[in-house]
Amino acid sequence: MREVQSSEAKAHLPQILDEVERGETIVITRHGRPIARLIPEAESRREEIDRAIEGIRGIQKRTSPVSLDELLAARHEGHKY
């Protein structure tokens, strides 16, 4: 959660709304005191999460299982020790 002065919110509303749409909560302040809170719309966020989960499950069905050793090897690939 981040705080934004009301004057900044006025000047940068489209960018602030983009952040809220991505899941960020924004508190708008005036003279250092909180006056409003912008939070993501719960239902649209839930739909987005559900679509993402469905996509992950689809990928899981199309791919073969990956062992722990393969995961660790991929994670360390290209590292210099």
Rank of each mutant, 00 (worst) to 15 (best):
E8Q: 14
E48V: 11
Q60Y: 06
E19Q: 15
A36V: 02
I49D: 01
T63F: 05
I49Q: 07
I56Q: 09
I39F: 04
K61W: 07
Q5C: 01
E70N: 10
I39D: 03
G23D: 00
I49S: 07
I39N: 06
L71P: 01
A9L: 05
K80P: 00
P34I: 10
E77S: 15
T63V: 06
A42Q: 08
Q60C: 03
R46C: 00
A73Y: 08
S64W: 09
R75A: 09
V27L: 08
L17M: 12
G32I: 07
R30N: 11
I53E: 11
E43H: 15
S6C: 11
I26D: 03
R75W: 04
T29E: 03
H31V: 10
P40L: 01
R46S: 05
L71F: 13
R22C: 03
G32N: 11
S44R: 15
V20G: 01
R37F: 01
R46G: 01
L13V: 08
D18I: 04
H76Y: 08
G32M: 11
R51L: 08
H76A: 08
A9K: 03
A73V: 10
E21S: 13
G58V: 05
L71W: 07
I56W: 11
H31F: 14
I28A: 02
I53T: 12
R33V: 05
R62I: 01
H79A: 13
R46W: 12
S6Y: 15
S44D: 08
H12A: 12
P34Y: 09
D69T: 08
E41H: 15
K61M: 11
S44T: 14
D50R: 15
R33P: 00
R51V: 06
Q15E: 10
L68P: 00
I49A: 10
E43C: 05
E8F: 06
H31D: 14
D69S: 11
